[in-house]
Write a protein that binds this DNA or RNA. Structure first.
Length: 490
RNA sequence: GGCGGUAUCGUCUAGGGGACUAGGACGGAGCCCUCUCAAGGCUCAAACACGGGUUCGAAUCCCGUUACCGCUACCA
């Protein structure tokens, strides 16, 4: 008999955006399902009506789709299963593993406060479980509201966790917990177990903040006579200060990173390395490679700190990993959004565009970096960066003369290609007495061509700009320098 | 407080009794390359929380201590 195919689920509550911690949980669930030929399901836990929003649900879908973590069956909305949750709770009432509790919230709060005041830990004292049958029936008939509590049995509850090995809880430390509210709606643990059984989930993989829920859920499976799934509790993600990752750590939603110009593949890769290692010093991986290398034995027990610096580095790695065509598909919309070019303009000069991306991507860490660098190649007007001007155009008149000479030398060339440009410009440097310090020409020229102090290699820039635009910009720079001169010298 | 979990460079990690002078990566420092900035190459600094065991031998196994984290609702 071979092991049944694993069925896993990611079960976020739609009360905010898709958090990077949630994304990582989804990723490991997804990886496990793909690796072992199982299914990855998505369940939206929207039973908390007050906090759940449709907007959050949409954000979860969008985040998962962006990451390409697609689910294999129709989305399950927990809120649609309320009747089954209730029916399951009532089965427990019927089979005697649960009982009615008539204590009100106010009474409970009072007893809890009293216990705390005495520095005692509070645990429900089971007083309603001691009510005799007649009394219970009398109260029910009288319409006294009640919750349903699960009666936790003697003994200990343990399971063999996929990441933590054995975890054991003495049952005496767990109080008889409520499974159905006075209004008949189910409590989290009841809803989860009922749904996981119905969805035939056989591996529950979730954050380790759920460890203390697990013994309760195991008891519920037992009381319901259902087969237990296996459990895997993943460590948390912390911020740089060691605290649980939250809003004040800055960007925590996956959508934030999408808008920062992070590639989905890089995000996934980075998240995978937060709590998992394939060994052999392997770090940069595509999703397919992650599936191939995935092994739950490599899962870490320790919480990991989210380091944005390493994410950026990882993004740089993926920028060169994905290939220029795929990169273009991601950069083009960003270029359009920045008003630098339209899709059809890019299509019209496809080869030129791809060559430009190759030049820009090695000096970029994010898609945004590429867009920022792309200005001079798309805009007609360039702006001179004051810092670059101050550094490279120190002596206005001399620079103007030099650039004029560069203009003429370049204009005199028969063609427009890198080799002869270099010969021409280096010869000019020699002639001007710069010796082999051709940078003394390249640097001022760079400012004339791009307005910036940094750019790809100067000959690449000249090629990308083309003969006409290059010569026009050098010309414009010469005029700019001479105008400035005449204005400041009356 | 109770219960549970965790502990290797600043950070992510490799390591599953001898291969450890503890490896890789990010970040940092420096050098090389070089027309700038990147990329790339090379070098350096940087860790087994502490204390007891077990063992011929412990980063690795056991027990304590400490620290940190999580849970402790008629939230999920």
């Amino acid at each position: 008999m071979s092991a049944p195919a694993p069925r896993l689920r990611f079960a976020p509550s739609p009360t905010g955006y898709l958090h990077v911690g949630g994304a990582r949980t989804a990723l490991f669930n997804w990886l496990y399902a793909k690796k072992f030929g199982g299914q990855f399901l998505l369940r939206i836990e929207d039973t908390d009506k007050a906090r759940s929003t449709e907007e959050s649900t949409r954000a979860i879908f969008e985040g998962l789709e962006w990451l390409r973590l697609l689910w294999d069956e129709a989305v399950v909305y927990q809120g649609a299963n309320l009747e089954r949750h209730r029916a399951d709770a009532e089965r427990l009432l019927a089979n005697g593993t649960a009982y009615r509790c008539f204590c009100t919230q106010a009474e409970l709060a009072e007893r809890r406060a009293a216990a705390e005041a005495n520095k005692e830990s509070f645990k429900y004292d089971r007083r309603c479980d001691r009510l005799d049958r007649a009394e219970v029936e009398r109260r029910v008939a009288a319409g006294v509201p009640f919750t349903v509590r699960f009666r936790v049995p003697e003994g200990t509850t343990a399971w063999d966790d996929l990441v933590h090995d054995t975890i054991e809880f003495p049952n005496k430390d767990i109080e008889d917990f409520i499974i159905l509210r006075a209004d008949g709606t189910p409590i989290y643990n009841m809803a989860v177990v009922s749904d996981d059984i119905a969805m035939r989930i056989n591996l529950v993989m979730r954050g380790d903040d759920h460890i203390s829920n697990t013994p309760k859920q195991i008891m519920l499976y037992d009381a319901l006579g259902a087969e237990l799934p296996r459990f895997a509790h993943l460590p948390m993600i912390h911020g740089l200060d060691g605290k649980k990752l939250s809003k004040r750590h800055g960007a925590t939603a996956v959508g934030d990173y999408q808008h920062l110009g992070i590639l989905p593949g890089a995000m996934l890769n980075f998240l995978a390395l937060l709590g998992w290692s394939p060994g052999n010093d392997i770090e940069v991986m595509t999703l397919d490679q992650m599936v191939a290398l995935f092994d739950p034995a490599g899962l870490q027990k320790k919480a990991a700190v989210f380091d944005p610096k390493k994410l950026e580095w990882m993004n740089g790695q993926h920028l060169s990993l994905i290939g220029t065509a795929e990169l273009a598909a991601i950069v083009s919309p960003a270029l359009e959004a920045a008003g630098l070019a339209t899709g059809s303009q890019l299509d019209a000069r496809r080869a030129w565009y791809l060559a430009l991306l190759d030049l820009l991507k090695v000096r970029a860490r994010t898609v945004d970096d590429i867009v920022r660098q792309a200005g001079p190649y798309f805009r007609d007007e360039i702006a001179y960066d004051p810092e670059a001007v101050a550094k490279q155009w120190k002596d206005g008149p001399a620079t103007a003369d030099l650039l004029a000479a560069v203009h003429d030398a370049l204009a005199a060339m028969p063609g427009w290609e890198s080799g002869t440009m270099e010969e021409t410009l280096r010869a000019l440097a020699e002639q001007r007495g710069f010796g082999d310090k051709a940078g003394k020409i390249f640097q001022p020229l760079r400012v004339a061509l791009t307005g910036l102090g940094v750019s790809p290699g100067i000959f690449d820039v000249l090629i990308m700009l083309g003969r006409d635009r290059s010569l026009a910009r050098i010309d414009a720079a010469v005029r700019h320098l001479r105008d400035a001169q005449s204005v400041s010298t009356p």
